[in-house]
Simulated assay, not measured.
Amino acid sequence: MTADVWLPIPADEIEGLPKELDYRFWDGERDFPADPADCAFYVVPYLKGPEIAVRPLAAMTSVRVVQTLSAGTDHVAPALGSLPAGVRLCNAKGVHEASTAELALTLILASLRNIPRFVQGQEHEEWRSGFYPALADKSVLIIGYGSIGAAIEDRLAPFECARVVRVARSARTTERGRVHAFTELPALLPEADVVIFSTPLTEQTKGLADAAFLARMKDGALLVNVARGGVVDTEALLAELAGGRITAALDVTDPEPLPAGHPLWHAPGVLISPHVGGSTSAFQPRAKRLLAAQLTRFAAGEEPRNVVLTTEGPTA
């Protein structure tokens, strides 16, 4: 049985890897490091785009685990239909929580306190004083209450928010309190001053923030998206931004990368960062620890962690 492992980080830079596996370095280059048919554990190159991510998959007839280094797996999952049954797709839970939550707070504070206006004022040597909104006393709605959503709530704790409301695919109760279901959003949206998306992109969440969703948001509310661009209907958002009724802070967009000339670049009340929620100095050490742990389990014949789905075999 083959034990080739394809890694986008050189194996000698990762402490704790089991020695009995054969490691091949591949970070999306044109040439493959070995025959894809011999790969048993495939770690998807990070931030290389979906075309590179899935390029070797069709030939990986022996693969048993596909491991992403991203929290989302929507760029890989559609290409798994040709793989044998029983292949585990695992995400990078535990790698991006700190960085993504940190950026979510950065975008909220920068938007509410109008930091872009101060930067523009500095460029023009203008002293733009005045009163600006604070995060204190605001009601915050987190849509997508998984590990990243929980990490965002951790970082909201010192800011004296009036209320933090949690929403996920299905209702449940946590130590912090109730998590509401998506079906409750119509009643929750009008009460939220800040609406944060940290949900995966799925059939259920694609276009969730459509015209009807945005229309239910409170006047003056801030929409923050650190999830996936496709969660928000861009045309509907542009219409709301044009009227000035809500504002937005977006780390992800649809389309992405946002092309030059797109109206979202210059829409009123929008702050855009270039999908940098996870790409910080915190990434490498956490990614290496995840890979060492997953491959140790793999070498021991144990089930990997963070399994998102298991393939059912090629479809006709």
Rank of each mutant, 00 (worst) to 15 (best):
A157V: 07
A157K: 01
P158W: 08
P158T: 08
P158E: 05
F159W: 14
F159V: 00
E160M: 03
E160L: 11
C161F: 00
C161R: 02
C161H: 04
A162Q: 06
A162N: 04
A162T: 01
A162E: 06
R163K: 07
R163Q: 15
R163I: 00
R163N: 10
R163E: 15
V164A: 07
V164I: 14
V164F: 11
V164T: 11
V165D: 13
V165I: 13
V167L: 14
V167M: 10
V167W: 13
A168C: 10
R169K: 12
R169L: 14
R169P: 00
S170Y: 11
R172M: 08
R172N: 08
T173E: 14
T173W: 10
E175C: 02
E175Q: 15
E175V: 06
R176Y: 09
R176M: 04
G177R: 00
G177Q: 03
G177I: 00
R178L: 15
R178K: 08
V179I: 09
V179A: 07
H180N: 11
H180K: 10
A181F: 03
A181P: 00
A181I: 05
F182N: 12
T183V: 10
T183C: 12
E184N: 07
E184T: 06
E184H: 09
L185N: 07
L185H: 02
P186E: 05
P186K: 10
P186H: 12
A187Y: 00
A187C: 03
L188W: 01
L189Q: 02
L189R: 02
P190A: 15
P190I: 11
P190G: 11
P190C: 14
P190V: 10
E191L: 09
E191C: 03
D193Q: 12
V195G: 07
F197V: 01
S198N: 07
T199A: 15
T199S: 15
P200L: 05
P200Y: 06
P200N: 06
L201G: 02
L201K: 02
L201I: 01
T202Y: 09
T202C: 12
T202R: 00
E203D: 15
E203P: 00
E203T: 09
Q204V: 14
T205I: 08
T205L: 09
K206D: 03
K206F: 13
K206Y: 12
G207Q: 06
L208G: 05
A209N: 07
D210F: 02
F213P: 09
F213Q: 06
F213V: 05
F213T: 04
L214K: 03
L214V: 03
A215C: 02
A215Q: 06
A215P: 00
